[in-house]
Design a protein around this nucleic acid. Structure first.
Lengths: 341, 341
DNA sequence: TTGTACGCGTTATCAT
DNA sequence: ATGATAACGCGTACAA
């Protein structure tokens, strides 16, 4: 139960060589007698030696580490994004250190968390937060390659990868139209409420209108949040208007609508078709059978890592770092909650 | 757009002092003329100076960092746990670096991720993984204070904080009994399938029997996973036996059961009461109204941080480090899916 | 009040 | 093939 963490010197002493040799063996450098090499290996494992990444980073000026900041790992959206980042990063030889806030964190804390990442001298930064203003990210982006992931962002000073909200909303609307719906209620949100939910919901309404569908927009802000009763009013309105489909901006809203229907002894899609949006997590499984739009967070994560690493390489090669904004397409999730009218 | 990261020397040069003075100012040490202090502050912010945590850690031999390892941040369970850890840790002055695997990671990768954390010289380790064998954690635990969070663990060499599966299962069973159910089907799992789902499900069945309830155990292993059709068979059996309630080991199973009911034109709790377990994430919201058992992951996270930091302090004070195993109680989530028979 | 010098653990360069 | 030594950026005794 040695409290003291072994250093390279301990390994060297145990193997009866100098620390230089140990370093060479451990980094896989050539020019060490195979007998010596084995002695060193043995000594290292016996001691349970793990190299001090900080000391390595100091001299190597490389940490092989990406910093990921996610607003709240407890939400499926960020959780999946985080996992995708992790997976891709380790595939291309980077480790990931994560700083996560929580829903209750003030933005000032998010800023501090970002600084933590920078203080760790991560080589690249992936910022996933719908709340953190880009102004807070910019100064860091000037120093370390940065990509904002998961939200639309168009500052030319950094790269971004996000889901195509507009395209997704339109495509889902087309699906609803193709099913034959001609009277549809769309639950819309304003940009001030959400930078992601707003564009997708307005895109749905706009596309439906283009297709000649009778559309009624109901603003979520006029009702009580995503609570059951708030959406209940929306469902009531939809039924009163003789609409055959209700399009919502997220799976949570959709589930709330389904419950509101059930509370009235009705169900989807028989009495009213219902669509969601997100396609992530438990709500999107085959269990509920939601008709929705799946955001490819694995792709977003992978591309985000791709962008940072490219920027890192470019900077290392002293080449010009080009920033890009990439919108990725989602895919239709055909479920059982939306059918023919 | 300076690619070069400013060091303490840059700040010193800009302020026209030596780096010692800068260090004192930034660490808040006394004995600096206030005029000088301000000059240094100004220089630091102008340069956007962020201290190199690695260099600091090397000399201070303290990193003020906790390492959290979570098996898969994409699942609500681990996501919430991670957030809880983060929240508590930053409240007590520690930063958290996280390494997360993903559902598809082999255990060898988990081991590597843990080493990454150790190489970063975190002062304490919180391990959240139902999959990683304790043997892989033990060697690290000997070196850095470690606590296993979120799964029952009784190795005396480290501390653990987890949910009381046994007590939860019993309490939920008592609720079902109190509702008046006398014929109940319990969907059980074996320990080889899951270290958490198994004990809770068996505790439910045992407690019900103690209370004189007629219990039929159906092994999940005998059916096709948690898929809709697999649980469909279970629901069929329950109805055929004229059971009034179906207890499952997780909210996912419960939702599957609800859907199976719906597919047959039936519903809960009218035709069959259904209970879940977990109480985390979207499935547990008021939307679905699941009757379930809520695992207090925020408490688990907070206690886990409390345990590690206590161990860190003890070790620093050269006192004896006591390991503890703490089971925390959950709470009943009264929903709409279980009613009187 | 301020500056000098040393060491933390590691890699890389240069001798040997 | 191996060993000594200089950095890396920072905190901190100690000297001025």
């Amino acid at each position: 139960m040695s409290a003291a963490v072994p250093t390279i010197l301990d390994v060297a002493a145990r193997a009866g060589v100098s620390k230089s040799v140990v370093s060479r063996v451990l980094t896989g450098a050539p020019g060490v007698a195979s007998a010596t090499r084995e002695r060193v290996q043995a000594a290292a494992t016996e001691l349970g030696y793990v190299a001090n990444a900080m000391a390595q980073g100091m001299v190597a000026r490389r940490t092989h580490t990406l910093g990921a900041f996610v607003r709240d790992a407890a939400t499926p959206f960020y959780g999946h994004l985080l996992t995708a980042l992790q997976e891709r990063a380790s595939a291309v030889g980077y480790r990931v250190v994560t700083a996560t806030g929580s829903g209750t964190f003030p933005v000032s804390e998010e800023r501090r968390a970002l600084e933590t990442l920078v203080s760790l001298r991560v080589e690249g930064l992936v910022v996933c937060s719908g709340a953190l203003p880009v102004e807070d990210v910019l100064p860091l982006a000037a120093r370390v390659p940065t990509v904002v992931a998961g939200r639309p962002e168009r500052s030319p000073a950094l790269s971004s990868v996000y889901c195509d909200e507009h395209g997704g909303g339109r495509a889902l609307a087309e699906h609803v139209h193709a099913l034959g719906h001609r009277r549809v209620v769309v639950l819309t949100l304003e940009p001030t409420t959400s930078l992601t939910l707003s564009p997708r919901s307005h895109a749905m309404a706009a596309r439906l209108r283009e297709l000649g569908v009778h559309v009624t927009q109901l603003r979520a802000e006029d009702h009580r949040d995503a609570r059951l009763d708030g959406v209940g009013e929306v469902v009531e309105s939809a039924l009163a208007e003789r609409a055959t489909c209700l399009m919502t901006a997220s799976d949570r809203y959709a589930v709330a609508a389904l419950e509101a229907l059930r509370a009235r002894g009705l169900s989807a899609p028989e009495d009213l078709s219902v669509t969601g949006y997100d396609g992530i997590g438990d709500l999107a499984g085959p269990l509920l059978g939601l008709t929705s739009w799946r955001q490819p967070l694995d792709v977003v994560g992978a591309l985000a890592v791709e962008e940072v690493t490219a920027a890192i390489d470019a900077r290392a090669a002293d080449a010009e770092v080009v920033t890009r904004h990439r919108a990725v397409d989602g895919s239709l999730l055909v479920g059982r909650t939306a059918g023919r009218p």
